[in-house]
Design a protein around this nucleic acid. Structure first.
Lengths: 212, 212
DNA sequence: TAGATTGTTAATCGATTAACAATC
DNA sequence: TAGATTGTTAATCGATTAACAATC
């Protein structure tokens, strides 16, 4: 339920986590109020853009004063759903899946990891971060009992189509996708956020070759 | 040395790895030629955008025919530097660092991992993907001998400033940065590509809350 | 009140899309 | 040659920045 417009552009939404992070730091440092101008110099966005962005969601500031740091932090947190505790499972417990299970602070972003799955039987019983890895064959039963809504896909592209189809049929419609498989294009109605690490690396390489 | 313009926008550059990937698949499937229109329907970009993008770098196509898949694949590969073999080291061998060292196909994107470093002495001697983890105290000597140009930062934000300063003083000026530390802002002249996994997760959460 | 800073409208800039002449 | 499709210019669309009236 966005406050004002229903159609907030992705450009704005992608900046929200950054605002949230900076405001969290300010709050931690005991800063009580901040103006768009001060935020601007700290974050490298223009003051104008900051006011525009925030106003997509509501008038959080006060003329002549600026923004209350804690209030704004909480508002953005709510917009991003950081307290939603979405039930999530990780599919594919290779190195990447393990890194995600043990390294990522999912809770900070509003997710709760409730299950780890892999098709490799030799991984069964192994625990990562205090949670046992389950076999893919138990996925159906698990979903019926626990109703996860999100899957973190740490699987190769070739395996993705079948797995996503199964997940969707089990009511899992949201994906944090590390594979190159294009979930959104093949399963309309699902939501997915893609992380293409190799693409990011190639972009770095390009920048290295073409730095002024 | 870009062929035509010197100032290619980031929007274009970020699409290049995707072109590269699709063309690689086409090539693998034995497709010899493709028109911007066909590519358009496969990739979800407009044909117009595809022609615009490619023309930033040169006239790779042929009127009335389209593009030669293999030639275009190679051209984009060269633009992205996929054969550069940049010497890279990973700093921070926690779960994320280990996942990167073992899971990522760096070579595919033009990078060669030549060293793994951590400040935790209990990790010394441990090997990941056939390469031993070294202690941070040996970083200086290592860099003098091997001249890496890129560092993959799998370290917490708090440790980043000191480590980046050391790396820069040792001639490492390019960073694939998984921490929230803002390298570019604090070390002008360096190149960095940031991967903010938590930001990506929060964006997923937003999309889940606001799907039409 | 005077000063500061927002919320919001208008102007600018850049990126995407459409159109078409050039040409294989 | 006729048909197809590029390379490129022009038109449109969207996002960012500037300006300022509203107001705390």
């Amino acid at each position: 339920m966005p406050n004002k417009a229903d159609n907030i552009s992705m450009s704005v939404i992608k900046r929200l986590p950054r605002y949230y992070r900076f405001l969290g730091n300010l709050k931690k440092n005991g800063v009580v109020r901040i103006s768009s101008k001060e935020l601007s110099s700290k974050m490298g966005f223009t003051a104008s853009q900051i006011r525009q962005d925030l106003n997509c969601f509501g008038g959080f500031g006060q003329q002549g004063y600026g923004y209350n740091v804690e209030q704004l932090y909480n508002e953005i947190g709510t917009i991003l759903g950081v307290n939603n505790g979405n039930k999530a499972i990780i599919i594919g417990m290779g190195n990447l899946g393990k890194a995600m299970a043990s390294h990522m602070k999912f809770a900070k972003s509003g997710f709760n990891i409730i299950g780890l799955f892999d098709s490799d039987k030799s991984l069964m019983g192994e625990a990562v971060n205090g949670m046992e890895i389950s076999h893919m064959s138990s996925l159906g039963e698990f979903c019926k009992e626990n109703s996860p809504t999100v899957a973190v896909l740490c699987i190769p592209e070739a395996a993705a189509e079948d797995i996503v189809r199964e997940l969707v049929s089990l009511g899992v419609n949201n994906f944090w996708n590390f594979s190159h498989y294009d979930v959104a294009a093949n399963f309309p109605g699902t939501v997915s956020e893609n992380v293409h690490l190799n693409d990011s690396l190639m972009t770095l390489n390009y920048q290295m070759m073409n730095k002024s």
